[in-house]
């Protein structure tokens, strides 16, 4: 790992150190300036979590998460936090897929994403896929807290193994709160060691790519969203709150992305 002395104000936030593995945090904070453009007073990455502001024109700020190392490896603990203040618009993507790899001592890796979107703020969180490689073990948590009039577009894609490869063990939990109320709380465990039946006819049935697209918008509270099938193995459904969820399964990452892109066009 590259030696990066943590910024003093982040030391208190650092997760407990374990003997092996990289522990890294990244933070983004977005707020509007006097002209209504979004500025980024905090854009801090470390270790494998490098952040770049990729476009500066227009009212929206674009940030790309650049993987400075491959990983996470077993034993790593990565955490990304983004905060969007009232009136700001932030869009975050990543330069490449995140690849969960086995570590040396068999310890699991952790990846925690925390998103806070204030009333009247907008966040598009559209990273590339997460690929679970054979022998890896990763726990991912994504938590989004949206203010009453906040807007969110969030995509998550999990790919089980590289082409033709068996997957590792992947646990993911996605929690979306709107105005203090949880409108989506979902866990998915898959791969060897996951609770039995994960690849059976009720859960994944041999599909190797699974993804979700969540759109939260205050208008959805009044207009509603009509449930609709998007092919055989994907559906759009209204959540119990001002949000909509697309759940999609596909044989591979490419076909999954196609379904979610179509869904995104339909919703935006």
């Amino acid at each position: 790992m590259t030696s990066h002395p943590p910024a003093p104000n982040l030391t208190a936030l650092s997760p407990p150190q374990s003997p092996a593995g990289v522990h890294a945090r990244a933070r983004i904070s977005a707020r509007p300036d006097a002209h209504g453009r979004t500025v980024l007073p905090v854009l801090h990455g470390e270790g494998p979590l490098a952040l770049r502001r990729t476009r500066a024109t227009g009212p929206e700020a674009h940030v790309t998460l650049v993987g400075a190392m491959s990983g996470p490896l077993g034993g790593d603990h990565l955490a990304v936090a983004a905060e969007v203040a009232e009136g700001a618009r932030l869009s975050v993507g990543s330069a490449a897929a995140t690849i969960a790899l086995p570590g040396q001592d068999g310890a699991p890796a952790r990846y925690d994403v925390s998103l806070t979107v204030a009333d009247g703020a907008e966040l598009h969180w559209l990273p590339e896929q997460l690929i679970s490689v054979r022998g890896s073990e990763l726990r991912v948590t994504t938590r989004a807290d949206i203010g009453p009039g906040g807007r969110l577009v969030l995509r998550e894609e999990q790919v089980l193994g590289r082409t033709g490869e068996a997957p590792g063990l992947l646990h993911s939990r996605l929690t979306v709160r709107h105005a203090g109320r949880t409108i989506l709380d979902q866990e998915l465990s898959c791969g060897p060691g996951a609770p039995a039946g994960w690849d059976g006819p009720a859960v994944l049935a041999g599909h190797r790519a699974v993804g979700q697209l969540i759109v939260v918008r205050p208008e959805f509270a009044h207009e509603g969203v009509k449930p609709v099938m998007l092919g055989d193995c994907a559906a759009l459904t209204p959540l119990a709150g001002p949000g909509a969820l697309v759940t999609a399964l596909a044989p591979d990452a490419l076909r999954l992305r196609r379904i979610l892109d179509d869904a995104l066009n339909r919703l935006t």
Binding site: E187, A202, M229
Partner: peptide, 21 residues
């Protein structure tokens, strides 16, 4: 209640939306 399990089955969810139609 946040500590309660939240395990999901993607195909049951997708299948239920299709079935309802």
């Amino acid at each position: 209640v946040d500590v309660l399990p939240a395990a999901s089955a993607p195909l049951l969810e997708v299948g239920a939306e299709g079935h309802a139609g």
